[in-house]
Amino acid sequence: GLTEEQKQEIREAFDLFDTDGSGTIDAKELKVAMRALGFEPKKEEIKKMISEIDKDGSGTIDFEEFLTMMTA
């Protein structure tokens, strides 16, 4: 499992990506986040990433899903 410290770091990354503070990361926010990390993702790639992570089919990534992605 994760230490509380690791969870906190992932939470901070999540909050950075969640620019509108909605508690979820949408495609637009993910794209901005990827760019910040030096990637140039295409729209299809973003969609694919979200569909792989987005277990509940909401079209957005919540913290639990993000946590799973970061620790996979």
Rank of each mutant, 00 (worst) to 15 (best):
G1I: 13
G1P: 08
G1K: 12
L2D: 02
L2K: 04
L2Q: 03
L2G: 04
L2R: 04
T3W: 04
T3R: 05
T3C: 09
T3P: 04
E4N: 10
E5Y: 08
E5C: 14
Q6T: 06
Q6N: 07
Q6R: 15
Q6A: 07
Q6V: 07
K7W: 10
K7Q: 06
K7Y: 13
K7F: 13
Q8I: 08
Q8K: 09
E9L: 14
E9C: 15
E9I: 14
I10Q: 02
I10D: 00
I10E: 00
I10W: 15
R11H: 03
R11A: 03
R11Y: 03
R11K: 09
R11E: 01
E12T: 14
E12A: 12
E12C: 14
E12H: 13
A13T: 13
A13L: 15
A13S: 05
A13P: 00
A13K: 12
F14H: 00
D15G: 05
D15K: 05
D15W: 07
D15T: 09
D15L: 10
L16R: 13
L16F: 13
L16Q: 08
L16D: 03
L16I: 09
L16P: 01
L16K: 14
F17S: 09
F17H: 04
F17K: 00
F17G: 12
D18Y: 03
D18L: 04
D18E: 01
D18M: 05
D18N: 03
D18F: 06
D18W: 04
T19V: 07
T19Y: 14
T19I: 14
T19W: 10
D20K: 04
D20G: 03
D20L: 04
D20Y: 04
G21I: 01
G21M: 05
G21F: 04
S22E: 02
S22L: 03
S22T: 11
S22K: 08
S22N: 12
G23A: 02
G23R: 04
T24Y: 13
T24K: 07
T24S: 11
T24R: 11
T24G: 07
I25Y: 00
I25E: 00
I25N: 00
I25L: 14
I25S: 00
I25W: 02
I25C: 03
D26Q: 08
D26C: 09
D26A: 07
A27S: 09
A27T: 12
A27R: 07
A27H: 06
A27K: 07
A27Y: 13
K28A: 11
K28S: 12
K28Y: 09
K28M: 12
E29K: 10
E29C: 14
E29P: 00
L30A: 03
K31A: 13
K31E: 15
V32D: 15
V32L: 14
V32Y: 13
A33D: 00
A33N: 01
A33L: 15
A33H: 02
A33W: 05
M34Q: 01
M34S: 02
M34Y: 03
R35A: 13
R35P: 01
R35M: 08
A36E: 09
A36K: 13
A36V: 11
A36T: 07
A36R: 12
L37D: 01
L37Y: 02
G38L: 01
F39D: 03
F39T: 02
E40Q: 10
E40R: 06
E40C: 14
E40V: 08
E40P: 03
E40M: 13
E40F: 11
P41F: 15
P41K: 06
P41N: 06
P41G: 14
K42R: 10
K42P: 08
K42V: 11
K42Y: 07
K42D: 15
K43W: 15
K43N: 15
K43I: 15
K43G: 14
E44H: 10
E44W: 04
E44D: 08
E44F: 02
E45G: 06
E45W: 14
I46T: 04
K47E: 15
K47P: 04
K48E: 10
M49A: 05
M49E: 02
M49K: 06
M49F: 04
I50W: 06
I50F: 13
I50A: 03
I50N: 02
S51L: 05
S51M: 05
S51R: 06
E52K: 12
E52S: 13
E52N: 11
E52A: 11
E52L: 14
E52R: 12
E52C: 15
E52Q: 12
I53F: 15
I53Y: 15
I53G: 05
I53V: 11
D54T: 09
D54C: 13
D54L: 14
D54Y: 08
K55D: 05
K55C: 07
K55Y: 05
D56W: 07
D56P: 04
D56K: 08
D56T: 10
D56C: 10
G57Y: 08
G57H: 10
G57D: 07
G57S: 05
S58V: 07
S58Q: 06
S58I: 04
S58Y: 08
S58L: 09
S58C: 06
G59F: 06
G59I: 06
G59D: 06
G59Q: 06
G59C: 07
G59S: 07
T60M: 08
I61V: 05
I61R: 00
D62G: 07
D62K: 09
D62H: 07
D62C: 09
F63V: 02
F63G: 00
F63A: 01
E64H: 07
E64L: 08
E64Y: 08
E64A: 10
E64D: 11
E65H: 07
E65Q: 15
E65M: 14
E65I: 07
F66K: 00
F66W: 07
F66E: 00
F66M: 02
L67Q: 02
T68K: 12
T68H: 14
T68A: 14
T68P: 01
T68M: 13
T68F: 10
T68G: 11
M69Q: 03
M69A: 11
M69N: 02
M69D: 01
M69S: 04
M70H: 02
M70F: 11
M70R: 01
T71Q: 12
T71N: 05
T71G: 08
T71H: 05
T71P: 02
A72V: 09
A72M: 13
A72D: 12
A72P: 09
